[in-house]
Structure formats: C-alpha cells, structure tokens
Design a protein around this nucleic acid. Structure first.
Lengths: 310, 310
DNA sequence: TCAATATTTCTCATATTGAGAACAAACGTT
DNA sequence: AACGTTTGTTCTCAATATGAGAAATATTGA
C-alpha cells in the first residue's frame, strides 16, 4: 500500500505549523503520544528524517519542510475533492472550451452572431490544449469544445467546423526553411504537452530525424508570436491567428508539407446531452461554415468518431 | 478524521478505469470482496452514490466520475510528494505566471532578452487572473507571477514592473462614453472573477450606480477584443494590448477616470526563495523598465506588500 | 437450462489506531 | 543547586479497521 496517508500529512504539517508536538496534538484533538508515534512511523516508512530532535523540541529538517509544503497541497486538494462532491455540478452557464487560436481568430464572429440571436445565454469561454479540453469535456467541466486534429475522443460526438492551415513561423534571423535541418539549433516555442499543433511540430522534426532540443512553453498566442518576432525561437501556428496580430508582420512564414499543414478544427460534445444553448451554436456553425466557403461540416453527431484522418 | 483516504481513491479510480470490481481487484492485488467493501464504505462516509449497480457490473454515476477525476489528481500529487522527498529538491523548470495581457504585450521583449542571456533555462509561462495566479504562487505551483493591482498577497514580495493605462473599448455601435450610463444595456465581456481589470470595470459601473447585467466570460484577449470589434459588447483592457491586435483598429477607445485608468503590474514571489532563474529575470526587469522610460521599480523585495494604492 | 462471470455478504485473523499512564530530558525560576 | 514546569517519548491495552477467503446470489450468454 501507500507510504503516505492524509492523516499523517496533517499531523506533520501541524507539528511544523504550530511549533511542536503538544501544540499540534491540541489543535488536532489528539494526545501527544499519538502525534509522536505517527511521526516516527512515517519517518520509518519513508526512510527520511523529517525532524531533528533538539532539546525539548522538534526542528524540521529540509525534507520535513518540503513534505509540509506538499502536505498543504494534498490537504487542500482533498478538501476540494469533498466540496466538489457535495456541491455536485452546477450548469447555470454555457461553458464552452476552445483552443486559444480558434478563440481569437474564428470564434469572435460566430459568438457575436450567437449573442445577437441568444442574448440571454451567459457564456463562459475557457481555453486550453486539445488534450486538456477533451479531459474537461469528459469530466463534464465544459459542455462542448473546439479542438484540433489529431485527437482521440471515444464516446464523444464531433462536427468538423473550421479548416486551418498550419505554418512555421520564425524571426527574420532565420533563412528559408524547407526541412527541419534548416532550423539549426533554434529554440522551439509551443503550448504545453497535449497541444495538437505541438504534436505536429514534433512530428515534422521527427521526419527530419531531429528532436526538440530547447522548448519554451507559453500559454498565449500573442506571446508566442511576439516572442518569435523578437527572435527567441520558432513555432507552428494556424495561419488564421497571424491575421489578427500586428507582431505577425515581423515574422517570417514558412509553409509546411501538405500532410502537416492541413488541419481541421472540430466541435466535440457528449451525444444525446445537448442543451438548447449548444444546439443553437451548432446550427449557427453550420451556417457560418457555408458562408466562409468551407466544405459542409461532416456531421457525426450520431456516432463517436476519432479525429484522425484516414 | 477525514472521509477520504488515498487507498479508497485508488480503488474507486481503478474500478472505473478497468471497468469493474474483479479487474480492479486483480490490478491492485486485492480480492474482489475487499474492493466492494471499500467502495461501499466510502459511499456511506461521503453520503454519495458513486456507482449504479446494473446487471453484473457497476456503472459510475456522475459523482463517481467526478471523484475519479479528483482521485487522479490526488494520486499523482501523492506520487510526486514521495518522489520529491526521495530526490530532495529538483528545480528543472522556471515556472512563471502572468496575466494574459502582460504575456502578449510586455513580456515578449523581456523574455527574448532573457532567453539570450540564459539559453539553458527552460521556461514554462502560464497565464491566469490575478487571483488565480496568487493562489498558484502560494501553492508553489509557480515560482513567480506578474499580477495587476489591486491585489492582496500577504507574505509575498513584490516589485512594480509595468505601468498600464486601462481603457474602455466598445464597437462602433456605441457612441461617446463618459460615464457608465452612456453604455445603456451593453453586454460586458471580461475575464473570470479574480481578474483585477474586471474588478475595475465593476467599480466603475458601481460609481455610476449600475450593475453588470449580462456578462460573457472569455479567457483570451484576442477573443475579447475581436468580439468587442464585432459589436458583441464592451470591455476594459490595458491600452498596451491593443497595439498588438489588428482587431483593435475596429474598436472605439474611451478613456477612463484617472483613478481607474492608472494601473501597475507587479512581479510577486516568495521572499528568500529566489532561484537563479528568478534573480536573472528580476535584474533584467530592472533594466527593461529603465529602457522603456517607466519610473524605476519600487523594490519591495524585503517586506510583504499589498498592491492597493494608498 | 446450465455454466461462466461478476458482485456481494459473511466470518475471522491480523494490523492499525488512539488514549492514557508513566518516564526521561530539557528548561526556567528561585 | 534544587525544584517545578514543559515537552517529547515509551509502553500498554482496548477498540476499530482492514484484507483474505469461503459461500451465496444475480446476471449473462451459449
């Protein structure tokens, strides 16, 4: 079984926070002998001295303080877990997830139209990587999410809604790039693991027999594009993102091979669980795609689908 | 004592992940009867049905799935706790938090210089609201964070680094705005609760005796500015953000009263716990502020300070 | 209908836990 | 130096929790 136990953590944390065994015991409504015993048992199980016995007191070691910091996090998360269970889930709002790039470039027009048609719907738009958004959708944190290929979302319904072209961007300090080796030792700037575009970047590098060397992880496209413009590194972004950013004028755009450049954005949701808010968005997206000249959406609402291209 | 226990969480998570009691028992090297017993005890203690007994199997309820998600986080953090104790302290990455607006407008130049000076430092830049960032800093999720006034961060050190001017932005469908009543029934677009700029917006409305009526919550400045440009609503943003976004050309900018418009961004960190990476950033920021013509930073490194203006 | 599968209930031996008494060491006051 | 107080530790023991295994029950599919 496990070496650590939430009660143990609470005890160690209290001894440090309150300055001793007796005070900790008092606060926790325990007897001092039990506090002593539990601390010693934990030390033995972990094989680590959490305290130095000095005089009449216990002085925390560095490892004792480290454990106490982690104990705080664990105990807080445990309390949050119980609270969340008690509260259940409240769905007073249309919680929609999106890639940050999609939120900035594709959604404003859509959401403006949506707000006009449904002014009473309160929207909460959260952004994240494809992997994280699918996770939140699975956990019902959000009702629907715009994600990019490649993705795997068994049990979820999908509708392809936007067509993106991915491009490599670099500062002017980088010449023409046709293959990964042209990059030399450039720093890569990307979203966190779980971002489909980052995966494309890593695929492309892998095709050229290269590995990502230095990676900076940013959670904001304006920051990524601006840093690329400043010469910090290179990145892969949808071309549509560049249209809205002034910093894009200062970057060099390199096309990618067609099998990497072509990328679809899909809307995902739980089949059979559509609120009226989501239904409204879906029909608006059908109309929007036709207006933009994209192909008609592939409506896979009735069957789970993987977003991998066959 | 506590209602939840790490072993319980592991069991519930395994039942859901492996599709049943028998399989979970096998994976966990337990007997099925014990898995059943532990699940039922936990359900009783929490007062919540985690599973529906259907046919020969257990179907997770929504709360069972919610708990399983939390279980993952708890178990991961527990493993990390033990690993950290075994390894001592590992600082492999400089985890830096920032407001999204600051990340896109102020940090690229700073980070480009930083990367040149410290190419070996791996940076992970996360964005969030002031409130959320302070929370993450307190929990040692991040080492430092750029936040905006007003904030309250007892125990943390602060250095004022950027001066921002907040402005109200609207679409062209809104005329001249001098006071809140000029807005009529416009929709407000803002970051989530915990965002200092949103608080300013609500203060300003309050001064005019108005309440926020319809609020859309977005987590992306490009999306906010683009939606304002599309006529969806109004927002308060730092003027520096507009410089980098093309959509800003299509918005109307209204100055705010000086006591609301003037806003400082501060870097926060734990006093006495600066890594070399953070020290490098702080000295770079000192130099950067001088170059930009901003006033010298108020260096409050040696005492906790509240960001409220006196 | 019957065998296989999956979960549950029940029993029991063992382990863990927490309280309380007694003890030892350190510290401060007189 | 003596003494009282404070702090942490060791030891004992009763109560509770835990995990394994056998038996029972319900469901499913051939």
């Amino acid at each position: 079984m496990r070496n650590i136990d939430l009660d143990d953590l609470e005890i160690v944390h209290a001894v440090i926070a309150h300055g001793g065994v007796a005070r900790a015991a008092h606060v926790l409504h325990r007897v001092p002998s039990n506090v002593t015993t539990r601390v010693k048992q934990l030390e033995a199980r972990l094989g680590v001295a959490l305290f130095v016995r000095r005089g009449r007191g216990l002085v925390p070691t560095e490892q004792g303080r480290l454990l106490s910091a982690y104990a705080e996090r664990m105990l807080r998360l445990a309390d949050e877990t119980e609270s969340a269970l008690r509260a259940g889930r409240l769905l007073g709002t249309f919680r929609l997830g999106s890639l940050e790039s999609t939120a900035g470039s594709r959604l404003p027009g859509v959401l403006a139209r949506y707000n006009q048609a449904h002014p009473a719907v309160r929207i909460e738009l959260v952004t994240g990587t494809t992997g994280a958004l699918i996770g939140r959708l699975s956990r019902h944190d959000i009702e629907a999410a715009f994600v990019s290929e490649p993705f795997n979302a068994p049990g979820l319904a999908a509708q392809a809604v936007f067509e993106e072209e991915l491009v490599l961007i670099s500062g002017h300090n980088v010449g023409v790039v046709r293959r990964p080796a042209d990059l030399g030792r450039a720093t890569l700037i990307a979203f966190a693991n779980g971002c489909s575009y980052r995966r494309r970047l890593e695929e492309w590098l892998g095709e050229g027999g290269m590995l990502a060397d230095a990676v900076l992880e940013f959670a904001s496209y304006p920051a990524i594009v601006a840093c690329v413009a400043a010469g910090t590194g290179v990145a892969i972004v949808p071309r549509s993102v560049l249209l809205g950013l002034r910093a894009a004028e200062a970057v060099r755009v390199h096309p990618l091979p067609a099998h990497l450049a072509r990328n679809r954005t899909h809307l995902l949701w739980h089949p059979g669980q559509e609120s009226l808010a989501l239904q409204g968005l879906r029909s608006l997206l059908g109309a929007a795609s036709a207006i933009d000249g994209a192909p008609p959406p592939v409506d896979a609402a009735c069957r789970p689908v993987s977003g991998r291209q066959a």
